[in-house]
Design a protein around this nucleic acid. Sequence first.
DNA 1: ACAGAACTGTGGGAAATGCAACAGCATTGG
DNA 2: CCAATGCTGTTGCATTTCCCACAGTTCTGT
Lengths: 211, 211
Amino acid sequence: MIQLFQGIDDEGLKRLAQCMRMRITNFQSGEQIAQLGTIIEKVGILLEGTAHIEMSDADGTCTRVQSLLSGDVFGELFFLPHEDRFCVVEADTPCRVMFLDWKHVIRPCPQSCDPHGRLIANLFQLAAEKTRQLSAYTDILSQRTMRQKLLTYFSTLSRETGSRTITLPMSLAALSEYLCVDRSAMMRELKSMRQEGILEADRRVITLKKL
Amino acid sequence: MIQLFQGIDDEGLKRLAQCMRMRITNFQSGEQIAQLGTIIEKVGILLEGTAHIEMSDADGTCTRVQSLLSGDVFGELFFLPHEDRFCVVEADTPCRVMFLDWKHVIRPCPQSCDPHGRLIANLFQLAAEKTRQLSAYTDILSQRTMRQKLLTYFSTLSRETGSRTITLPMSLAALSEYLCVDRSAMMRELKSMRQEGILEADRRVITLKKL
DNA sequence: ACAGAACTGTGGGAAATGCAACAGCATTGG
DNA sequence: CCAATGCTGTTGCATTTCCCACAGTTCTGT
């Protein structure tokens, strides 16, 4: 199920395809799907496969800044790169990608078709979700101590799943990068949190004991 | 000049006002302008005055998470609060605020009027700008050392103004909070950066000497 | 089944950062 | 003009975090 097309039936999709000149392209693993500039030009929807956005720093180092899964929407709307940086979307596995022209999206079609309005609403919904994720992330990073970073992240996960026991969606090594802290220091911190009875931790499975 | 209405003339504004049931309300200092829920309901535009968004934490502490100036747009689209948090917009000075109903914004009017499309495009533009700001901020916070945080922030400012000499838009004390570091530690770091010839710093005026 | 790679867990020592406290300067409002 | 307040700049000391190194485990592809 693709969120972007939620509430739009096949009939509507066909009309939309005409309205906004949809085109679908296939990419192989490692192939470049798009480059992101500083103005909004295109909207991409990953129909199948996995990909990621990577950013070249001024000094040449590449950083993977975002992972994209099936159904994800990407483009300048959702990730406007900084001016002096080079930003590309690259396929991790074979991908099937749909592109829309931005200018056709925002220009309501003459018939003012219903699916079009729906699509725009969905796009906004996705944009809002994006900012929510980003602000949740800054919420974590703005914590001063590592313990607070960890607890902020864990309680977000716990809230989302509705359970005190959570399974991390990434390796502990990746978690340390996500939190922007040293891995060994994080292990040490987890250890002392365990000793203080704040949580139980066995590899990726964490159980929060106190609030 | 209000960005949201860029490219729309008075004639168009009048039509829009009908289309989407614009209404304008005045607020006094300290008055609550709106509460932000978890679904998109309204779009607010601050026409005059200054305000801020504050978030009540689970433990009751209030944090000012965003300042709003004349022309700023707020609402769930731009700031979706976390589920268990209570989020309000409050006036700092007397404010004049315009509200639009979200459902009328995304529903293209029967006549498919041109200003409507323009408004939607502007809204997207603003949303994109918001995510850009947020990701610039995470870019800073994700730096591991204070020096890198400072340099990342300074070079962003420098890039924006196109000059190597920048004037901080806030006090040094506020800057330390923005960067989520200790103020005295930051002063110390600025001092050693000055001594190493990386920059010149006199109060809020900073000159970058090396890249 | 095996080799290689990635991940987890631990520790010592170095470096960075935070905390607390204080003094001088600038700004503001009566 | 003065007092009060907030901002800047500095320091000693405690703590946290980082860096590096190593060992055991799990995972992965052949």
